[in-house]
Structure formats: structure tokens, C-alpha cells
Simulated assay, not measured.
Amino acid sequence: MKEKIIEILTEIRPEFEFNESIANFMEAGYLDSFDIISIVVDLETAFDVKISGALIVPENFKSIEAIANLIQLSKDASQV
């Protein structure tokens, strides 16, 4: 899952090298609110999930781990 997330992030912002050593992509200037919209669409397609609008907050896009948790949370919510 993490490899696919990195692939999506790199497609959107190829000028940056996304990895787990970056503490916060938003604070580091790697991503902005406009990027988040594209990322959500790509994540929903790649992982066959629907991400709730309530979950589209900067904290959920600050790291690879946060994005992976968001995907898992969205998957779990769709199974209820």
C-alpha cells in the first residue's frame, strides 16, 4: 500500500521525493490544499474506497502513514 501511495504523491508533485522521513508533507510545503483534491480522487480509484468529506483534513495527508490510515479507515467504514 505504501508504495502505491508514494507513486500517487510523486505523480502529483514529481519535484519532491516522498518518503517516511518527512514528518509533515503539508508543513514541509510538499502538498497544499489543491493537491489534496487530486490525491483523494487518485486514492479512491487506486484503493477502491470512498473517502468521506469529513476525513479530508490536513492531518490525514501529513505523511505516508497518515494516508495509509485514512485508506484503511475508509475501507472499514464501507464494510459497516
Rank of each mutant, 00 (worst) to 15 (best):
G53V: 05
D42R: 07
E15F: 12
I22D: 06
I64M: 09
E27Y: 07
I37F: 08
Y30E: 02
V57D: 03
T10G: 03
I56C: 06
A46P: 00
I8A: 01
V40M: 03
N19T: 01
D32Y: 05
G29W: 13
I56Q: 08
T45F: 10
A46E: 10
E15S: 07
I37E: 07
E27K: 09
L73V: 14
G53F: 15
I5N: 04
F16T: 04
E44T: 08
R13K: 12
T45S: 14
V49I: 14
E44S: 15
S78K: 10
F16Q: 00
K50G: 10
S38A: 14
F25W: 03
R13E: 15
V80F: 10
R13T: 11
S21M: 09
P14H: 09
K62F: 06
A68P: 01
A66I: 01
F18N: 03
D42E: 13
I67L: 02
V40N: 01
A77V: 15
V80Y: 15
T10I: 07
D42F: 05
I56L: 15
F25A: 05
F47K: 01
S21V: 07
D76E: 12
Q72G: 04
S78R: 13
I64N: 05
I5Y: 04
I71V: 14
L9I: 08
F18S: 01
E17D: 05
R13H: 12
D35N: 10
F61K: 05
I22A: 09
S33G: 00
S74G: 13
I5S: 00
I64Q: 06
K50A: 08
E11L: 12
K50Y: 10
F61Q: 04
E27G: 00
V80N: 11
N69H: 03
V40C: 05
E59I: 06
S52A: 12
S33P: 06
E44P: 04
L9V: 13
I8E: 04
E7D: 10
I8G: 07
S52E: 14
F34M: 03
K50P: 03
